[in-house]
Design a protein around this nucleic acid. Structure first.
Lengths: 236, 236
DNA sequence: TCGTTTACTTACAATGCTGTAAGTAGCAGG
DNA sequence: CCTGCTACTTACAGCATTGTAAGTAAACGA
């Protein structure tokens, strides 16, 4: 029952590629990740990935068992490399004091390869909960680092830790938001045609965050803010 | 994600409901929006929506022509109501000077009904580009409002407009990011079990933004920030 | 050279979804 | 009461997609 059905442009009749399993799986994961970033998890079709790699779709099932198995494999690999990239960039000691440059690195890491998009996909589809040990404590680690530097500079006390933590959380949240809806927000702000608007905005954000971290004791500022807010909302 | 609740609120055999077209379409759009928010555009099945409403799936095709027609209708309605909610809340004159309350309203409007999730879905699936006149200039409008207030308070000049604009953009971006990856970021910060952590964070963010808008001339602060960065670690 | 393993193939089964065809029935106006 | 309109129904066609069955050939060691 072989015969006729020269399925595709690949391999003329008789020649059959047989890659080592590891290499084939890597190729499949690459193609799948590409498709995932482009169109989302639900749009991932085995036949498409197979066509990209140049094999038939049961070959993928041979390697990964099922579509779900492929999904888990590709997300696991993507999240692992994302985390590795992040910690590598954050631990890079080339310029360990320039907060703006550090922020820029995180920006790049998240936005460049579409990592933020992928994570957003996973979170929205609920797959983000599956590997709960994925992006473990990255925010916390960075906050610890920053807060220690703040204390060393005499700009904060241990009690202000949450302020440092929230600052890093804001950075992370804004980075994700920017990676996903950045163009739309810029359009809504009337900055669409401005090519370097996104860079200006990121720079502005970095300055804001650094200024916040460098300013006088957050505890006092916090109290001041609370007092002002309380006075403003007396009427309710 | 396959749910297809067999709700079957349909009347007993023989009796057939016949609603006016407008009412039926509204019910269908409600159910479709619900499913969209829950599981994303690709997971929207006509039969599921039909089951939710209590009709057969060709009834939906009768009203909306095709699945794509339903998608367009529900997204158009959702974006329209989102924009309407936003401008209504922003234009509400009950307390027109309290920036924190205003920000809170936007927070609620975006996060409460899952609007941010929906918009994220649309942007990620590329459907966000289809209706380009959707969220037109909301950010710009808010920025105009805020900047005018700033000038009136003697806290800024016309030249500082971009600072106001970026502040609003940051708010919008962070709001979206929080609505999407908020829980994950909080978990990564080690705040998972803290129930009101999100509210504390939002309050903190509101204070940060308001403090930024209320502080002395942004132009000077901007220059100072640049200078400080140039000098690396100079504390003024 | 033979034999085993396994990366891969073709063919097909099974399922689920969108969309169509044709008919039914509720509600309006005469 | 009758008649037209149309909001709906059931049945089915068509198609895409995942997964299975069985077989083939490439690499590798004896």
């Amino acid at each position: 029952m072989r015969v006729s059905s020269p399925v595709s442009t690949r391999s003329r009749k008789g020649t059959r590629r047989r890659r080592p399993a590891e290499e084939a799986q890597r190729a499949i994961l690459d193609a799948a990740e590409q498709r995932l970033l482009a169109a989302g998890p639900d749009a991932l079709r085995l036949q498409d990935v197979a066509a990209d790699v140049g094999v038939s779709h049961p070959a993928i099932l041979h390697h990964f068992g099922s579509r779900e198995g492929l999904m888990q494999a590709v997300t696991a690999r993507a999240l692992a490399t994302l985390e590795a990239d992040l910690v590598r960039r954050l631990a890079d000691p080339t310029d360990d004091v320039d907060g703006a440059a550090l922020l820029d690195r995180v920006f790049e890491t998240l936005g460049d390869r579409g990592h933020a998009r992928l994570v957003a996909w996973l979170v929205l589809t609920g797959l983000g909960d599956v590997p709960p040990a994925a992006g473990v404590r990255v925010v916390r680690a960075v906050a610890d680092l920053v807060h220690a530097r703040r204390i060393a500079a005499g700009r904060a006390t241990k009690a202000d830790f949450e302020d440092s933590l929230f600052t890093i959380m804001l950075a992370a949240t804004a980075l994700f938001g920017d990676a996903i809806v950045g163009p739309q927000v810029r359009a809504s702000a009337g900055l669409a045609q401005d090519r370097d608007a996104d860079q200006r905005f990121r720079l502005w954000l970095a300055e804001l965050l650094i200024h916040h971290l460098d300013r006088e004791s957050p505890a006092e500022a916090h109290a001041r803010g609370k007092k002002a807010r309380a006075l403003r909302t007396v009427r309710r």
